Amino acid sequence: EKKAIELVNNIINDDTDKYIMKHKDPQTFEKIKEVVLNHFNDYKDSKEYYVIDKKGKYSLKEESPLTSYYNENGAITKYSKKNNGPAITSMKFYSEKLGNHLAITGNYNTNNKKVILKQISPYRTDFYVSPEGKYKFVTVRYKDVFYKETIHKFVIDENWYNEEKVKKGIDSDWKFVCSMHRDELIGVIKKEGQKCVYDASINDGQTQYHDGKHYEILKFTATNNDESGRFEVKPINTNCSKRLMPSVGPFIKIQKFATDVLGNIYEVKDNRLKLEFD
């Protein structure tokens, strides 16, 4: 109910950009807005239902009109031509302030199940290399992946993806290297004499250096900072109390690795960019 009231307040004050549905499914969002605004226009002058602050911002005082609508008519359904879409029980939203995992409750009092949303969590990180050997990456987040029912696949919009490449300065002559998901293995090489990403001296071991030839194999976590080109990794055979957040810049080679059924590590050579997947 608390989140339902927040949604109502956002709608009546025209502050709805954070809601994913507004951008991805505007027709359904309009159905929800209509229920809210019909109630608001009928009762906005009644102090019993709505209060207005000095800045002219309204807030709901009584039970959410969405809950009232549900109790009288049943759930609002997703927009469809035959008006037989599935019931809407939760609202997802973008957030850059609340961390990567957002827990919200449903709009209605049907149950108290929490929906864990990972909308702004990175889904995968795609690495590219320039003809000169410089590396950069594109981050695909969960909010950028949608299910396309007509082909029964998950899809990343190609236009959006190409725009992200342009933003990152990844030109058409750059070569796709690999896509990295959480807990997959990434191999990196730095110039000879540079410290390893996981420096064993962190755990009272001996400082290790790259020889410019052999891969340092690490467990990939996720993009850490898009703007500074940092991603997060962990050592594969030991615990590390320090967060390892290397910048993509110093690497002279990046490659994806995997383990076979016997636990042997091998190089993944067939790396193709996938914008549609099961």
Rank of each mutant, 00 (worst) to 15 (best):
Y70T: 02
G212R: 10
N162F: 01
K61L: 13
L7C: 12
A103S: 07
M91P: 03
E149V: 09
S68E: 07
I88V: 14
Q208R: 14
N239A: 11
G56K: 11
Y79H: 15
E1C: 02
K256F: 05
N9D: 14
S179L: 04
I170D: 01
K143Q: 05
S64F: 03
K191N: 14
D260M: 10
R230F: 05
V177C: 07
Y209T: 04
I5Q: 01
F154K: 09
S130A: 09
K253D: 15
G74E: 04
I32C: 10
K242T: 13
K118N: 14
T139H: 05
D183P: 00
D211I: 02
Y43I: 00
K3S: 09
G85I: 11
K55I: 00
G249D: 15
Y147W: 11
F176A: 01
D17A: 13
V115H: 15
K234V: 05
W160D: 00
Y70R: 08
D173P: 02
Q208P: 01
S59I: 00
I189K: 10
Q194Y: 13
L185W: 04
I254D: 02
Y69I: 06
T16H: 04
E63S: 12
N71P: 01
F251E: 05
E63N: 09
V155Q: 02
Y79W: 15
K33S: 14
K165E: 00
K18R: 14
F231T: 03
K3A: 12
P131G: 06
V268M: 14
G212K: 05
I265Q: 13
I156T: 00
Y70S: 01
M180T: 03
S80P: 11
S46P: 00
N13F: 02
L37R: 12
Y94G: 00
K18Q: 12
L273V: 06
S121N: 10
N71D: 11
K213I: 06
Y266F: 15
L102S: 03
K213Q: 14
M91E: 14
H210P: 01
I217S: 06
H39E: 08
I189M: 08
S179F: 04
F231A: 02
L117A: 09
E184K: 09
D278A: 15
N237L: 12
